[in-house]
Design a protein around this nucleic acid. Structure first.
Lengths: 331, 331
DNA sequence: CTGAAAGCGCTAACAG
DNA sequence: CTGTTAGCGCTTTCAG
C-alpha cells in the first residue's frame, strides 16, 4: 500500500489539510497536533510526493545542470561545487553532459522542461544561441557559469578570462620568453584569453606569429597533437600557453616525447588548476579559477532569480590567480 | 498563460484524451488527427508535464546516482557512462555526491524518495547498510556499481577486484620485487584487492610485512603521506601497489620528493586507469576497469529491474586489464 | 486552530 | 477511432 498524505491524516486522526500545513509549516497549528502529525509521519515513514506538490504550483526543487562533459575534471569540479550549494538549499541537480553538441543540448532542454525544473545552470557552449534564448523566454530562470553568451541578457559567473590570459602570458614574458605559442579551445571563454595573449605580446613589442596560434578541442590528445606541430616548426616556440590543463598535459607529453628538457627548453602554462596540474611532471604552472566560490555564487544567483526576477542581470567576474609551479622557467 | 494538454486539444480541435493518446502513442488514432495534434503541439511549443503524468502512475523517468565524489575522476567517468546510457533510454540522472558520509546518504535518499525516482544506482559506500536496505524494501529498484554490499540481495556490477589485485601484484612479482607494499582505501571494493595482494605474496613464498599495508582515504595527499612513511622505513619497499590512481599519483609525488629514480628505485602500480595515469611521469602502470561497459550494464540491469523484478539478482564481475606503462620495472 | 472541497495536468478506462 | 470522466497526491482558499 502506498502511503500518502491521507494515510498520515488517518493515523494522526486529523484532516489532510492539517497534515499539509504541518509539512509546509504554513498556517497556524497547535503544538499538540503538530506533534501528533510528526509522529504519524515518522511511524509510516511518509515522504511527500514532490510531483503532486509541484502540480499544485509548488516548486519542483529540481535544477538542470548542463556541462560539456562531466568527465572533464574542470567541469566535475564545477558540478561538485554547484551540487554542494544546491543541496544546502534543498535543490536537486539533474546532470546533463552535452559535449557542446547542439542536438544533445536540445534534447536535454526538452527533457528538463518536461520535468519543470525550477532553474538552469549552464556551462555548455550553446553555439546555437536561440535554443537557450527560447527556454529563457519561456521563463525558466537561468544562469551561466564559466561561459558567456554576450547576446543574451542573463546572469553570469565567470572567471576574468582576459585577466587570466594576461596573467599567464605576462608571466611568460617576464621570464624572458619571446616565442610564445598559444593553444586554445573553440569556446567563448577562451576568446578573452586569446585576446589577452595578443595584447600582452603587442604591449611587449612582439609581433604575434600566426603559426603560433592553434585552435582545437579540449582533450589531452589534441594538446599533444598541437604541441607536436608547434615543436616541429622551423622556429619553434620556447613557451606554450595552453588554455586549459588538459591541453597542457598533452603539451607536456609531446615535449617529453621529443626529449625536451622541461622547463629549461620549454615553458608551459595551463589554465583551471585541476587535479592534473599537480600530477604532471614538472608540476604545472597554471591559472586557477575559484571553483568553489563560483559554484556557490551561481546557485545563489539562480535562487535570487527564482524568487523574483530583478529587472537587471549581473555579470560576475571572479579573480583568477596565477599558480606558479615547475613547468615555467626563464629562457 | 501556461500551455497544457488542454490548450493543445483546443488548438487541434480534439479532446484532451486524444492528445494524450498521441503523446503516449497508445490506443488507435487516425493519421490525420495525429498530424493535427502534432502540429498544435509544435505551434504552442507544448511540453507535457512529467509530474502530472507520474502522478497518474507513469514513471518519473528519474534515476538517482549516488557517488562518493563526482570530482574524483574515476566517479566522474562512471557518471558519464551512466548518464550516456540513461539518456539513450530516456532516463534523467539526479546527481548526488555523498563523500561516503552516512548523514548525506540519508538526506539524499530522502530527497530522491520524495522525487519518486524510478531507480537508484549507487556507488556510494553505505557503511550503514540498513539505510540502503530500507529504501530497497520500499520497492525502489536499485543497482550497485563499483561497490558491493554482500549482506544485500541486489544487482551488482563491479570489476573483478580480486583478479585486478592479482594482476597488479603478480606483475610486480614477475618483475622480481619481493618488498611490495600496498596502500588501500577503506571501502569494500578494496578488500578483494588486498586479499589478492596477500594471496599472491604468500603463493610466491613471501611473508607479508604488516608495515607494508596501509589503509587511508582516496586522495592524492593521502597517497603522498602514506608513501612518505613507507619510503622512510628502515627496510623500504621496492614497489608499491596503490589501490587507485589518485593514491598512486600521491606515491609518485612522494618518491620524487625523496629523489628516487622512478621506476628504477621504486615501481608503482595504480588502479582504475583514469586520466591521471597518462599525465604522471613516469606514466602509470595501472589496472583498468571497463567503465563504459560497466555504466551501460548497470543501467540495463536497472531497466530490467524496473520492468519486472526477476526473482533473482545478478552479480556481474567485469574483467580488469593490466595496462603496463612506465612506472614499473624489474628491481 | 481545523476541516471540507476545489482543482493542478494528466492517463486510463469506458462509452459511443 | 474519439470523447467523457474519474481520480493520482497534494496545496489552498474558505467556513466553521
Amino acid at each position: 500500500m502506498k502511503i500518502t498524505i491521507r494515510s498520515v491524516a488517518e493515523e494522526a486522526g486529523v484532516s489532510i489539510g492539517t497534515v499539509s500545513k504541518v509539512i509546509n509549516d504554513s498556517g497556524k497549528i497547535s503544538e499538540k497536533t503538530r506533534k501528533k502529525v510528526f509522529q504519524a509521519m515518522q511511524k509510516l515513514n511518509y515522504k511527500p510526493d514532490a510531483a503532486a506538490a509541484s502540480l499544485r504550483g509548488k516548486r519542483t526543487k529540481l535544477i538542470g545542470l548542463l556541462v560539456p562533459d562531466i568527465s572533464n575534471p574542470f567541469y566535475a569540479g564545477i558540478a561538485r561545487s554547484i551540487e554542494d550549494r544546491s543541496h544546502e538549499v534543498g535543490l536537486n541537480v539533474m546532470l546533463c553532459s552535452t559535449d557542446n553538441n547542439t542536438e544533445k543540448e536540445k534534447n536535454y532542454l526538452a527533457l528538463l522542461t518536461s520535468q519543470r525544473v525550477d532553474g538552469l545552470v549552464v556551462a555548455s557552449a550553446f553555439r546555437s544561441t536561440v535554443l537557450l534564448q527560447e527556454t529563457i523566454e519561456q521563463g525558466i530562470p537561468s544562469v551561466l557559469i564559466a561561459s558567456e553568451i554576450p547576446q543574451l541578457s542573463i546572469n553570469t559567473v565567470t572567471v576574468d578570462d582576459y585577466k587570466g590570459g594576461y596573467l599567464a602570458t605576462s608571466h611568460l614574458l617576464d621570464l624572458g620568453h619571446k616565442d610564445i605559442a598559444i593553444i586554445y579551445e573553440n569556446v567563448r571563454s577562451n576568446e578573452p584569453r586569446l585576446a589577452a595573449y595578443r595584447d600582452s605580446l603587442r604591449e611587449a613589442g612582439i609581433d604575434v606569429n600566426p603559426e603560433y596560434i592553434m585552435k582545437t578541442e579540449a582533450t589531452i590528445l589534441k594538446g599533444y597533437e598541437c604541441a607536436k606541430k608547434l615543436l616541429l616548426l622551423e622556429e619553434k616556440p620556447t613557451a606554450i600557453f595552453a588554455c586549459n590543463d588538459l591541453l597542457a598535459a598533452g603539451v607536456i607529453q609531446a615535449a617529453k616525447e621529443l626529449e625536451l628538457d622541461l622547463p629549461r627548453e620549454l615553458s608551459v602554462v595551463g589554465f583551471d588548476n585541476t587535479v592534473l596540474s599537480t600530477t604532471t611532471a614538472p608540476m604545472l604552472t597554471t591559472v586557477s579559477q575559484p571553483i568553489k566560490q563560483m559554484g556557490a555564487k551561481v546557485v545563489n544567483l539562480l535562487l535570487q532569480e527564482m524568487e523574483e526576477s530583478k529587472g537587471y542581470k549581473e555579470r560576475l567576474l571572479m579573480a583568477p590567480e596565477l599558480i606558479v609551479r615547475q613547468s615555467t622557467a626563464s629562457v
